[in-house]
Nucleic acid binder design. Sequence first.
DNA 1: ATCTCAGTGAGACAAGGTATCAGGTAGTCC
DNA 2: GGACTACCTGATACCTTGTCTCACTGAGAT
Lengths: 145, 145
Amino acid sequence: MSDLEALSLKLEARGYRVTPPRRAVIAAVLQQAGHFTVDDLLHRCRGAGRATVFRTIRLLTELGVVCRVLLDDGSLHYRLSQRPQHHHHLVCTGCGKVQDLDDCAVSDLVRELSGSSGYEIEGHWLEFYGHCAACRSEVLVGVPA
Amino acid sequence: MSDLEALSLKLEARGYRVTPPRRAVIAAVLQQAGHFTVDDLLHRCRGAGRATVFRTIRLLTELGVVCRVLLDDGSLHYRLSQRPQHHHHLVCTGCGKVQDLDDCAVSDLVRELSGSSGYEIEGHWLEFYGHCAACRSEVLVGVPA
DNA sequence: ATCTCAGTGAGACAAGGTATCAGGTAGTCC
DNA sequence: GGACTACCTGATACCTTGTCTCACTGAGAT
């Protein structure tokens, strides 16, 4: 079963129709390698209007199929989610590659903070930025010591 | 020396002029209790145009006087920075109160992640959301068991 | 056949922010 | 003082990201 079919079934299971425009958006999302914007999708999928792309992305986000990636500069991008549950990202600012961090690294921190601050902590944002191994070696080749 | 004067000197030391509109924006920022938007400032300081308020906020952000606070929903607000160096926030989603977290709690995590991922990690976002002690007790009073 | 309703595209709208541009002003050099 | 320059200004146009509205379509139920 292709990813497209799997996602279509998932939508249908939740009572959503799998229409041609939705199918086009999902196909476009599946083609994206790293993080992307709605604008990227719009250029790539001619079969759906702007509003529909936004609506479908929102839908996919709610289903956990797509997650939001917060970039260095504060802008929000989207990404095909490898894990539906809560997770964080490690974003390469060189090539845009995104790596999921499988376990939530700050759950201990949250517990500790709850005790010390008096807050009941209900959520958090955590994203890391850097250069991946490939981009680092490229830089080293480009600028020899 | 007032905060306004101190910030004026800081601007001058960097070679920026302290003009009446900039002074008005800084005064408005100093009046804000928690986090605020540029729109909040615009309503509060009549002495400066929209573009100037945006420009001044960007300037203050670069100087570390104001820091950006990422809210739960992904929107960016601003806040008078208590610490010019890198830090994180604990935001009360009830009353909007913001608490600075003094030491960067993820520096250990960054080191660990650098080793395991091959990335050279250069930055990160970390914000916590929850309800502060005051808001929690209010809820308890409002909704008795 | 018709009714209903989720889904649609076009386009208006909104928030938040940047770019442009003509004009103002402070400081400097003569 | 006068000219020059660089910085700063407000108004306004514009961009980006996203939502809302509205008339329309098409699939499924009756």
